[in-house]
Amino acid sequence: AITFRFEGQEKAKKFYEKLMRQNLEATIHIHGDEVHVTVH
């Protein structure tokens, strides 16, 4: 698994949606202002 870190939720959401379109499995974790997107 690879984890990407984002400042702010907007960028993270766009990235997450892009992964979903590519049929990749990903989970999102929100830590205050920092958002972690883990790709499995």
Results as ranks from 00 to 15, higher is better:
A1N: 11
A1Q: 12
A1K: 13
A1P: 11
I2P: 03
I2T: 07
I2H: 06
I2K: 07
I2M: 09
I2Q: 06
T3G: 02
T3Y: 05
T3P: 02
T3N: 03
T3V: 15
T3M: 07
T3W: 06
T3L: 08
T3R: 06
F4S: 02
F4G: 02
F4Q: 02
F4M: 03
R5M: 10
R5I: 15
R5N: 04
R5Y: 13
R5Q: 07
R5H: 10
F6K: 01
F6L: 02
F6R: 00
E7P: 09
E7C: 10
E7M: 11
G8Y: 09
G8P: 01
G8D: 15
G8L: 11
G8F: 10
G8T: 15
G8M: 10
G8K: 11
G8R: 08
Q9P: 14
Q9D: 08
Q9E: 14
Q9R: 09
Q9H: 14
E10K: 06
E10G: 05
K11C: 14
K11H: 10
K11F: 09
K11G: 10
K11T: 12
K11W: 08
A12Q: 01
A12E: 01
A12L: 03
A12K: 01
A12G: 04
K13R: 13
K13Q: 14
K13P: 00
K13H: 10
K13M: 15
K13G: 05
K13I: 14
K13C: 12
K13F: 14
K13D: 07
K13Y: 14
K14C: 03
K14P: 03
K14Q: 13
K14V: 11
K14W: 10
F15I: 02
F15A: 02
F15M: 03
F15G: 00
F15R: 00
F15E: 01
F15D: 00
F15S: 00
Y16G: 01
Y16Q: 03
Y16M: 08
Y16K: 03
Y16I: 11
Y16S: 02
Y16E: 01
E17D: 12
E17S: 04
E17K: 06
E17F: 05
E17M: 09
E17P: 00
E17N: 07
K18N: 11
K18S: 13
K18I: 11
K18L: 14
K18A: 13
K18H: 13
K18E: 14
L19D: 00
L19C: 12
L19Q: 02
L19F: 03
L19W: 02
L19E: 01
L19T: 02
L19P: 00
L19A: 04
L19Y: 02
M20R: 10
M20W: 05
M20A: 05
M20D: 02
M20C: 06
R21N: 08
R21A: 14
R21V: 08
Q22C: 05
Q22I: 08
Q22R: 07
Q22Y: 13
Q22M: 15
Q22L: 15
Q22K: 09
N23F: 07
N23M: 07
N23S: 07
N23Y: 05
N23I: 03
N23V: 04
N23E: 06
N23W: 07
L24D: 02
L24G: 03
L24T: 05
L24K: 07
L24W: 10
L24E: 02
E25H: 15
E25L: 14
E25F: 15
E25G: 09
E25K: 15
A26C: 04
A26P: 04
A26T: 04
A26F: 15
A26S: 04
A26W: 09
A26M: 07
A26R: 01
A26L: 09
T27N: 05
T27F: 08
T27Q: 06
T27C: 08
T27K: 04
T27E: 09
I28K: 00
I28S: 01
I28F: 07
I28N: 00
I28L: 10
H29P: 00
H29V: 13
H29R: 09
H29M: 11
H29G: 05
H29A: 12
H29N: 07
H29D: 07
H29C: 10
H29L: 09
H29E: 14
H29Y: 12
I30K: 06
I30C: 03
I30Y: 12
I30P: 04
I30V: 10
H31R: 09
H31D: 10
H31Q: 11
H31N: 11
H31V: 15
H31E: 12
H31A: 09
G32I: 05
G32Q: 06
G32F: 07
G32H: 06
G32N: 07
G32L: 06
G32R: 05
G32D: 07
G32A: 07
G32Y: 05
D33A: 11
D33H: 11
D33N: 14
E34W: 13
E34I: 12
E34S: 09
E34M: 11
V35P: 01
V35R: 00
V35W: 15
V35Y: 14
H36T: 12
H36A: 04
H36Y: 15
H36M: 09
H36Q: 06
H36F: 15
V37S: 00
V37Q: 00
V37R: 00
V37K: 00
V37I: 10
V37T: 00
T38D: 03
T38P: 00
T38Y: 09
T38S: 05
T38E: 05
T38Q: 06
T38A: 04
T38I: 14
V39E: 02
V39M: 10
V39N: 02
V39A: 04
V39W: 13
V39T: 04
V39K: 03
H40W: 14
H40R: 10
H40Q: 09
H40P: 06
H40A: 08
